[in-house]
Design a protein around this nucleic acid. Structure first.
Lengths: 208, 208
DNA sequence: CGTAATATTGAACCGAATCAACTACCGTGG
DNA sequence: CCACGGTAGTTGATTCGGTTCAATATTACG
């Protein structure tokens, strides 16, 4: 979005913290590469991953001056540091920020449906479909002619997936095992999952 | 936000539909009075209320050109119809839209924690605390000297509350009955609930 | 006052959590 | 290269919170 010459890019290792909830929100970022996980903690340690951001998304926007959740890199991640003042003055940039925020809101709406109304199996299927762009959404292309399989790389631990889906690691594991048993997926590595048929996975998401 | 002379205000009766999910997002609104409930449906009829908006909030902002959820008035509600073109040109207005969107995102983050990680009792307590501004949040004033009770008016049916909290009507009812039994609240009318002690309700929200 | 809609309560059931054991994987160093 | 230890993931048995189904009570309203 901005010319690379005038902006600074910072690298984060897998699981490295970008900022903590309640810290002063002094910096804003744009994801250049990798992903960022936003999460909140309850006092007793329960954790909920509230959003997962990837290339092009903005991280660390705050209304109150304090970050409203913590942020952690998923995989090797590079973030461009943005200048708040530059944005405030530029109508064009503001429009871009606007679109990013709206996109977050739509995603958060979907996630509320998942957390409030979907079964464990539907949540895991929905999670897997995140990694298949253009499928399972409006204007879904339908099953590709011929082979409709695909390998998705999660780059998240079972604990992170569970905290994102509002489940426990055991439940996530059980659902994946069950999908494997039924031939819907096969687990090539812990975080490399082959969807035997994208369409079949999609039918398990609960949206149909 | 805008001068009343040049803008149109539309009134909606309780439970009247403002727009439907997937309709063309041709209009944007600002809540003048009352509230608006945003919800999504799954194909089998499961419903999740994803957000509840009140005075000053914007309704019907869309990224895709289609509304991403349905909107329904809660109580007698008045909405100001906004002109999209007017906003796009005005940096000052954009900043306001921006702040509104950020506020939605923070609320949606909180709601994800509620839906993903809180017990039924914690969800209902959190819901009741929504109606007590300035308490149970950062910089909470603490219990008022003397009487710390308060009557809150829900203006929503048990079904709507349940769909907002990701529960069933029976569970909502049971939790409220249990709180009543323990003297935390008293139900003066179905939608008029007296919190005997705001502080005690707050302690049940799970955030402490 | 009578009726329909909404809310409460009870009993049985079920899905996911919990607790506990076991297994696979990964990196390190002998 | 393989043995070792630690971490992450799986699987099983049991428990528990919330749902479901059914009956009753209450409220709103003509």
């Amino acid at each position: 979005m901005r010319s690379a010459a005038t902006t600074r890019v910072q690298s984060f290792a897998n699981h490295e913290t970008v900022f903590h909830e309640d810290d002063a929100a002094d910096r804003m970022f744009e994801v250049v590469e990798g992903s960022v996980m936003l999460f909140r903690l309850l006092a007793d340690g329960r954790r909920q991953v509230v959003d997962i951001l990837s290339a092009g998304d903005l991280v660390g926007i705050s209304l109150t001056g304090l970050y409203d959740c913590s942020a952690e890199a998923i995989g090797e991640t590079r973030l461009r540091i943005l200048d708040r003042r530059q944005i405030d003055g530029d109508a064009e940039l503001q429009l871009h920020v606007n679109r990013c925020l709206m996109s977050r809101i739509e995603t958060l709406h979907s996630h509320a449906v998942l957390l409030g109304r979907k079964s464990a199996a539907e949540r895991v299927a929905s999670f897997l479909m995140r990694f298949v762009p253009g499928r399972g959404v409006v204007g879904c292309a339908g099953p590709a002619e011929g082979d409709d399989s695909r390998v998705v790389v999660l780059r998240m631990t079972r604990q992170e997936i569970a905290d994102y889906l509002g489940l426990t690691i055991e439940t996530v594991s059980r659902v994946l095992s069950d999908m494997k048993r039924r031939g819907v997926i096969s687990i090539e590595k812990n975080d490399h999952i082959r969807l035997a048929s994208i369409c079949r996975v999609c039918k398990l998401t609960g949206i149909h």
